[in-house]
Structure formats: C-alpha cells, structure tokens
C-alpha cells in the first residue's frame, strides 16, 4: 500500500512501491495535469511539489513519498480558491504558454521557487528553473517571474 496525500486528499493505493509517482498520479488517480516528458528527470514536465519542494515525479517512486503532502497543478489551482494562484495569473498576464504541455511542470517549479525564495535573482531563477519548453516560452517565463518578484519586493 502506498499512502500519501494529494492536493489535500488522503490516498491509499495498492500499487508497487517502485511505481513512479507520475504514473500513480496519471494512470491510477486520473490527475493528468502532470505530464510525462522524458522519464529520466531531464525535462521537468512532470514536476509536482512534495511537501512544497519541486520534485520530478517521473523518477520518484511512490515509496519515497510515503506520508507526504503532494501538490499537483490541479491542487495549485484549487488551493488558490476560485482564483488562480499568482504564478498562474502571471502566466496569463504575460501570455506565456504556447503548446502548453510543459507549463504544468514549469508553473509548479516556479511556484515552489517563489515560495522558498520570494525574491530570486536571475541566477537563482536560472539555477532552479531547468524545465524544457520546446516552444521556447523562456523570454515570457522570465518576464512573468520578474513581474512576480518585483511585486513582492514592492
């Protein structure tokens, strides 16, 4: 049995302990907002938060998240109430997504970064946000992050 909370809901799954969290979320729980991109933690499309920390769920076995609190993109939206979270709002404001496939992971990574470091330097951002976006939304990702950090500073 794998036990963890996902977006505030206790989950108990009869699955192999070595099953990656990604496939438990997608195929067992139907939370398809978290995406499969590479399977080797190289692209970040599968990023979720485990106890608030960004984690690449495609290489994280469910045994490693036993008893933790997991937040997915669906949970980020829900936890912000009727509105979207500030990162999501900034993503709309700056019209960041194109195909959009990598953006769940991108948003989860950025949101974790800004929670732990509300005023990251560009170097902090470069170091933390290593997600691949094949459409090349990076200029807008950076702009959207800057808009959030300057707001926080002010």
């Amino acid at each position: 049995m794998a036990r963890f909370r996902v977006n505030g809901v206790e989950q108990e799954l009869d699955i192999e302990p070595e099953m990656p969290l990604l496939w438990a979320l997608r195929d067992e729980l139907g939370l398809t907002g978290t995406k499969f991109g590479c399977g080797v933690a190289a692209c970040g499309a599968c990023t979720v938060q485990v106890n608030g920390n960004p984690v690449r769920s495609c290489v994280t076995p469910v045994s490693a998240v036993e008893g933790t609190e997991i937040t997915t993109i669906e949970g980020l939206t829900a936890s912000a109430g009727a509105l979207l979270s500030p990162v999501q709002q900034a993503w709309i404001e700056h019209q960041v997504p194109q195909c959009g496939y990598c953006q769940s992971g991108m948003i989860m990574a950025v949101s974790a970064l800004l929670t732990s470091n509300p005023n990251p330097t560009d170097a902090d951002v470069d170091g933390a946000i290593t997600n691949v976006c094949r459409c090349g939304t990076y200029p807008r990702v950076r702009r959207a992050i800057r808009s959030l950090t300057s707001t926080t500073t002010a």
Binding site: G30, Q88, V96, P97
Partner: peptide
C-alpha cells in the same frame, strides 16, 4: 487579444492526446 487557449494551459485542464482517459482502457 489574449489567447483563448491559455487559461486551460495554466490550470492543468487543457487536454492533450496523451490525457485521454476511457473506461477499461489499457496502455
């Protein structure tokens, strides 16, 4: 004009082919 598809692409609800879910589906 803000793009119509963007809101669904920031809240995880935009559905791609890989997200299709059907009763009894195998992989």
């Amino acid at each position: 004009i803000p793009r119509i598809d963007i809101p669904a692409k920031v809240d995880g609800s935009a559905a791609y082919g890989i997200d299709a879910r059907l009763p009894g589906m195998l992989y």
